[in-house]
Design a protein around this nucleic acid. Sequence first.
DNA 1: AGGATTTGTCATGGA
DNA 2: CGTCCATGACAAATC
Length: 742
Amino acid sequence: MLSLKKYLTEGLLQFTILLSLIGVRVDVDTYLTSQLPPLREIILGPSSAYTQTQFHNLRNTLDGYGIHPKSIDLDNYFTARRLLSQVRALDRFQVPTTEVNAWLVHRDPEGSVSGSQPSSGLALESSSGLQDVTGPDNGVRESETEQGFSEDLEDLGAVAPPVSGDLTKEDIDLIDILWRQDIDLGAGREVFDYSHRQKEQDVDKELRDGGEQANTWAGEGAEALARDLLVDGETGESFPAQFPANVASITEAVPSESEPPALQNSLLSPLLTGTESPFDLEQQWQDLMSIMEMQAMEVNTSASEILYNAPPGDPLSTNYSLAPNTPINQNVSLHQASLGGCSQDFSLFSPEVENLPVANSSTLLPLVPSNSTSLNSTFSSTNLAGLFFPPQLNGTANDTAGPELPDPLGGLLDEAMLDEISLMDLAIEEGFNPVQASQLEEEFDSDSGLSLDSSHSPSSLSSSEGSSSSSSSSSSSSSASSSASSSFSEEGAVGYSSDSETVDLEEAEGAVGYQPEYSKFCRMSYQDPSQLSCLPYLEHVGHNHTYNMAPSALDSADLPPPSTLKKGSKEKQADFLDKQMSRDEHRARAMKIPFTNDKIINLPVEEFNELLSKYQLSEAQLSLIRDIRRRGKNKMAAQNCRKRKLDTILNLERDVEDLQRDKARLLREKVEFLRSLRQMKQKVQSLYQEVFGRLRDENGRPYSPSQYALQYAGDGSVLLIPRTMADQQARRQERKPKDRRK
DNA sequence: AGGATTTGTCATGGA
DNA sequence: CGTCCATGACAAATC
């Protein structure tokens, strides 16, 4: 039965922690404060809450070596520590959300930049990037955007934020997912802008010059593309069969770029390097922002030259310098914008271009001529690839390719972030209501972690009480353990006399006995006089809860009734001292016990027996002495026990508060995260539509959204594929996550 | 007077 | 087996 109690207490505590953190719906505070019988009774109830829990065991086995196992204060300390660590562990478990949230806050287009991060300019860039995205006149603003781009580079370099070194894998995964959205989108868009313009020119020339389009591209540094174009036999679409040869020439301009084909890598590289410490999220975001900026500007050689002239030591410059030069497929050059990333730093993709699956599948229209063999492995390592980017083009497909194309991004987002979103949605639908969210936001705007305490149980002690309790507990243990050797006043009340006999006797005169108001201040500090320090002037007050008990038969002989009316001060003093004495002390005096109750009680057994042997004591005396010892020890034990109970309750209270704080914080973070996610989704969708709308087939006609869809491949390329194929791939892709989840 | 709280005590069980 | 300790339960003292 006892073990069951212990189990219940401990288990329920943990269960409470879990409930409050897992189930948003479970409100521990409600259970505790609303007096719902079951939980409250179990946790705080008269029996189980007071039951000694496994704290001892935990402490002794984990980190309690060398410490007296029965020290109350240590109970408090270790319990608090253990529970706190649990909470923090849970918090750490939630870190992904936290980290991502912080990151996303910066990209808030409204410029709601968290104060803790120094990238104030970033939000502005973000907004401008958005404007560019939606702006109808991207091409017109060529020059200014160009300038802005270079400025951006400087800014980005200046704002490079500190690296958050302890990102967990979940962090990185989530970040990468979000990163991919924007990167891919921004990339695709930027390329499309360029492609679009190119297209318009080239189409005209094609009509005029026939097969001389390659020459047309020479000026743009893209002549090789035309060479490599393949014509899809089914659709008639032209697509690059392999990576453009001109990339090499472009990369030459990059100081530290050694591998020419690394251009394509830049799209994914920021993500892939998420696991690499030196690359921080802020940087990634800045990259993304800059890419978005780039999409509004004209990509031409002059711009590239400017960029390339950036100091070689500037990593940002080198990173971004690649983007303008991106070779562009005349049909669909989605990938170029995505190459704005840091190819130099993250040349993860092998230069050797594996033959695209596209080549095998004639129906596929690879928008990006590049594909990398190392991509799949790299991505699988980040756990992202599977989610977001199907390893191979024909091997996987997104949900995007719905028959009626309404949400082309659905696949990108819904599938890629299936896990996260579903979890969050679940949480939102089940346990999270907007009212709560807004409340949370309001509460946390005040930056007060304790804002939830308004609903706190009235029984909760004030912090001062708690602190006094804990401080008292620390000193009481020493008292309990060392009191054996300390002198004990025979006149003082057993258990809470001062450690000085003379002080007790002489100064107790001014004491007024039990004073409840003081006892409340010095709660739980009755055992050790030193604990009265919270009220120094009470130090000498014998905190004796003297009973006005009727003298027992033994006492009656010797003890004058307290009501004896002798006016002398001596009498008064004796009277008072009598009152101060405990029953056992009266008895001891009555029986003429030759030593103090303090010794009787606190002496070790050997010394105690030694002491007894020194005197010739009657059987009654011996019996009384043993009773006194037993009762005295039990009294202290009872005090310790009650103190422990109280500490346990206080700890539980504190734990509940902590959990409430954590829960509220997590909820707030979730809200912010979802908000950012929503914005991202919208942005991605608009970009997708814009990109798709700018696509033209070889005849200059736009693709029908009902027949084609853009697909994001695992290597960062974007493909234009027929809907039917997209459907198939989507179906195939649906099964994968389930398998993986097993 | 009576409820609530504090404290001491006893019985019991585990170490 | 004796001792010590923890704790539930009870009662007295006190507020």
